[in-house]
């Protein structure tokens, strides 16, 4: 906890109207707005630790979670965030098989939009899906993950976890390790962390690196040892199982040997290093349980807690903008 974390009482005064009607990308925000959002989220962390966790900033509002991809933590995090702020929340998880044949993403969203929700939270497997919907509906759209493009609320909760652990983000050395190529978490984190002045490295096998990644304002490393040397934060990414059987890397055991995080590799990082993971973890593939479960090192549980608070802050600020619009 930082000393100047605001209490639950003054969250009302800290909400500010969002710069845009939708929240699609971390690049929708500038560093000052990110700072204000994180301050507000700090207040919600305090609120969430009280017995009574309710606020009424979203009273009367309707929130629809539209998740085309399976999700446990992001969906429940947005659901709790909405409910704690007093909104009515419904969850829709249209699986490909149960979508009425022929109904497109846009049709589904337009149909839901006709029920007059205030905020639509969408996760979809295609990059740009949230942006597409934001052009077709009248409510606010929050991007909860679009393909391999962005997952902005994840990046904000990661940054909040770092700021609370280190008291700052500026100047931190953050190593993002693993399957960067397919990771929306990595893209959002790179954009947000570089914006806030962190020194970002991406570490992983060359077959899992995006093209021209060195032009993202990051250092690219293919060797885990040099990649995490001196790092303050090691952020491990999830490796999808179907990408391990010879297509991108030869095998799980080779991957774990070369890029999995264990005590030995972690010893090269800075003193006081903290380990993060967006979850769900593949233990023994990208991360050793010994590291993942060490409360001195792991921020994984903090990330989940910060997730609810950050999403409350996002919802509160989007709603503040809605309040200003007739």
């Amino acid at each position: 906890m930082t000393a100047n974390a605001p209490g639950a009482d003054d969250v009302h005064n800290r909400t500010f109207p969002f710069p845009r009607r939708h929240f699609l990308s971390v690049t929708d925000l500038d560093p000052i707005q990110v700072g204000e959002l994180l301050d507000l989220a700090d207040g919600f962390v305090a609120l969430n630790r009280q017995t009574t966790k309710k606020a009424d900033l979203l009273k009367g509002r309707t929130l629809i979670n539209l998740f085309f991809e399976a999700s446990t933590r992001t969906q429940s995090s947005f659901e709790l965030a909405g409910k704690r702020l007093g909104a009515d929340v419904i969850n829709m998880s249209p699986r490909a098989s149960s979508i009425v044949k022929g109904e497109t993403l846009v049709d589904t969203a337009v149909t839901l939009n006709a029920m007059r929700p205030d905020i639509l939270v969408i996760r979809h497997g295609a990059s740009g899906a949230a942006s597409l919907l934001s052009q077709k509906v009248s409510c606010s759209v929050i991007n909860a993950g679009d393909g391999q493009h962005e997952h902005p609320s994840q990046a904000l909760l990661d940054v909040l976890s770092m700021r609370r652990a280190f008291g700052r983000v500026d100047g931190l050395i953050v190593a993002i390790c693993g399957d960067v190529l397919h990771s929306r978490v990595a893209r959002s984190n790179v954009a947000l962390l570089t914006m806030l002045g962190a020194n970002v490295r991406v570490v992983g096998p060359a077959s899992l690196m995006p093209p021209a990644v060195d032009r993202w304002g990051v250092e690219a490393h293919h060797d885990m040892k040099s990649g995490i040397a001196g790092a303050d934060v090691v952020m491990m990414l999830r490796l999808q199982l179907e990408r391990m059987q010879g297509a991108f890397v030869p095998s799980t055991r080779e991957y774990f040997r070369l890029w999995g995080l264990d005590r030995e590799k972690l010893a090269r990082a800075a003193k006081g290093v903290r380990v993060m993971h967006p979850g769900p973890m593949n233990r023994g593939v990208e991360i050793d349980s010994d590291v993942a479960d060490d409360p001195q090192v792991s921020l994984v549980q903090d990330q989940v807690e910060m997730g609810v608070a950050v999403r409350m802050a996002i919802l509160a600020c989007l709603a503040a903008r809605l309040d200003n619009q007739p």
Binding site: S127, G128, D146, G147, Q148, H149, E150, R184, R187, P210, P211, A212, V213, R215, W216
Partner: peptide
């Protein structure tokens, strides 16, 4: 096309 730009957009390229 595979490039810095399409990489940022997260598009298969």
């Amino acid at each position: 096309t595979e490039s810095e730009f399409s990489g940022r957009l997260g598009l298969a390229a």
